[in-house]
């Protein structure tokens, strides 16, 4: 059995659990709990360990998707999940600039622990307050286009959009393999 493990990370409310639910062919193994901190202002439930989804596309081939919690108090879960990942996507809600700093923290954390390929997926791009790709890239600290990972727009609610995001991530991984 050949398995590729992708991690879906990002700040609270970026759409990580929804992302996985949109493409998983199995009922997603989630660890949602009622949110009681400031997270509850954004949504009712929050992931406390991880979400797990799967896509089998051959008799001996499967894609595993792991979603991390968003709050930094669960950073030990970030650590556990990133260790075995082949690649990851950092989801960022483009209409909540407040969270850009959290996204940077998560990225710095991941970068310190893993060199695997990554891309950035901007969610909530249909909101009137959403920042565009170029400006979000700057706000996330990507000043040099050469060193910037692929940044895409993704709607976690749409299976097609999520599939496209995973294609981008997989293709980005393939390029990295060739180098």
């Amino acid at each position: 059995m050949e398995i590729m493990r992708l991690v879906v990370t990002g700040p609270v409310g970026a759409g990580k659990s929804t992302f996985i639910r949109s493409v998983s062919e199995i009922a997603v193994v989630d660890t949602d709990r009622q949110a009681t901190d400031e997270t509850s202002l954004i949504k009712q439930k929050t992931t406390v360990a991880f979400d797990f989804g799967r896509l089998a596309f051959g008799p001996e081939m499967a894609l595993h998707l792991y979603g991390t919690p968003g709050q930094s108090r669960f950073d030990f879960m970030w650590d556990i999940l990133i260790q075995k990942a082949h690649a990851y996507i950092l989801l960022v809600a483009a209409h909540r600039p407040r969270e850009f700093v959290d996204a940077r923290r998560i990225r710095a954390f991941m970068r310190q622990r893993s060199q695997v390929p990554m891309i950035i997926g901007l969610t909530h791009m249909d909101s009137p307050n959403a920042w565009d790709i170029e400006n979000t890239a700057i706000a996330l600290g990507y000043l040099n286009a050469d060193k910037c990972p692929p940044i895409i727009t993704v709607n976690p609610n749409e299976a097609a959009s999520v599939a496209q995001a995973i294609i981008t991530l997989v293709q980005h991984s393939m390029q990295n393999c060739l180098v």
Binding site: T46, V48, A49, F76
Partner: peptide, 29 residues
């Protein structure tokens, strides 16, 4: 709390309450 926030604690010195809480919640879930 089930989402990993401390309600009350009496822990050995050096253990971070917030971290212990988050770990407990993750393990229970």
């Amino acid at each position: 709390t089930p989402d990993g926030l401390p309600l009350a604690a009496s822990l050995p010195g050096g253990m971070d309450e917030e971290r212990v809480s988050a770990m407990s919640a993750a393990m229970l879930s």
